[in-house]
Amino acid sequence: MKRWGITIPLPGMPLTAHRELIERLPDLGYTDAWTAETAGTDAFSPLLLASQWAPRLRLGTAIVPVYTRGPGLLAMHAATLAEVAPERFVLGIGTSSPVIVSNWNAAEFTEPYARTRDTLRFLRSALAGEKVSEQYPTFSVQKFKLERVPPKPPQVMLAALRPGMLKLAAKEADGAITNWLAPTDVPKVRGEIGPDVELVARIFVCPTEDRSAARALGRMLISSYLTVPVYAAFHEWLGRGEALAKMHELWAAGDRKGANAAIPDEVVDELIVHGSAAECRERLESYVDNGLTTPVISVLPTGGDPAEQVEALAPR
């Protein structure tokens, strides 16, 4: 494996307790540590710590919403990480969802494709040290210039699910970040970006041989994520529209329990990696075999020690 990533922080483990594990990640075979940003830690703070604990790791955000920070503040965050982890930081940006953007952060979720494109173009200029005065289609910036320009601008990748955003990522960014896909879905996504663009994907891994427990947890995650319109459209495009139709019908009717039960075992097994550590590693490798550049493990809570699970899931 050229790249093998882990999502930090781990569930149920205090952020300050991660140091020993993160220091060991490169020796275990991990190349990357990535963060997410929903309602837990922010995306940047764990990476700032990791940059000092494990100087060999590549660090990335997957992803930071383009709506919840102003363009200038987003550039400042990225420049700070690029300074402390030179040539090892990747800024992953994306639209996030209306719940996170509007319901939780009081921002307006409008024109997601255009806002992402405009933010990417602004960041390219700002992180190169240019003074930016520009009327973009979705926002305006006047006379912004970073006071601390990173020695080398960080890579910027885009969260992308369907052809439009995937093509934008391939044309103007340094790669595409996706999630909620099976190994057999990777070729279709890869087909939109071409063979040479880095493709990162967060993969949910439930390292337990209790298949009933893994599927129950998987169903809860699938119903809460894939009912979001952008993910529903993604899986319609991938060909799961019919398999997930009953879930969508019951969810829309307010029957959460019924929606969970309506998700076929086959869909859960496609989208959630579970089983023994060896089975999980084999499944993760199949993503790479199908064209994924960078698998990023997101360990789901099973009641086990998450640090031990990360060690067991290390590449062999």
Rank of each mutant, 00 (worst) to 15 (best):
R256P: 07
V228S: 08
H235Y: 06
A243H: 07
W237L: 04
A232R: 09
A245E: 15
M247S: 10
W251K: 03
S223G: 02
K246T: 10
N260Q: 14
G241H: 12
S224K: 12
A245F: 07
G239S: 03
R240I: 04
H248F: 09
K257A: 15
I222G: 05
L238H: 01
I222Q: 07
R240V: 01
G239D: 07
M247H: 12
T227S: 15
L244D: 08
W237P: 00
K257G: 15
A253Y: 03
E249L: 08
R240G: 04
A233W: 05
A245Y: 11
T227D: 14
A253E: 12
L238K: 02
L250R: 05
K257R: 12
R256D: 02
W251D: 02
F234R: 01
A252M: 03
I222E: 01
V230C: 04
E242Y: 11
A245C: 05
G239F: 07
N260S: 00
R256C: 00
A259S: 15
H235P: 08
W237N: 02
K257T: 14
R240A: 02
H235T: 08
I222T: 09
S224R: 13
E236L: 14
M247L: 13
G241Q: 06
E236K: 15
G258C: 10
S223I: 07
M247Q: 13
Y231T: 02
A253G: 12
P229I: 09
L244A: 15
V230H: 03
D255A: 08
R256H: 12
T227A: 11
G254K: 10
A252E: 15
L244P: 08
V230M: 00
P229A: 04
R256V: 13
A253T: 07
K246Q: 13
Y231Q: 01
S224Y: 14
G254N: 15
A233Q: 06
G258D: 03
E242M: 12
I222M: 08
K246S: 07
A233F: 02
L250V: 09
A243S: 07
G258Q: 04
L226V: 11
R240D: 11
L244M: 15
A252I: 04
W251Q: 05
F234A: 01
F234E: 01
H248A: 06
H248Q: 05
Y231M: 02
K257Y: 06
A245K: 11
Y231G: 00
L238W: 05
P229C: 06
P229V: 07
H235C: 06
Y225R: 11
E242N: 14
H248G: 02
Y225W: 11
G254F: 12
I222Y: 07
Y225C: 07
P229R: 07
F234V: 00
G254S: 09
K246L: 06
A243F: 12
A243D: 03
L226E: 08
A243E: 11
V228G: 00
L238G: 01
A233T: 03
Y225H: 09
L250Q: 06
R256Q: 09
P229D: 09
L226A: 02
G241W: 12
N260W: 12
Y231D: 00
G239H: 05
L250I: 11
S223V: 10
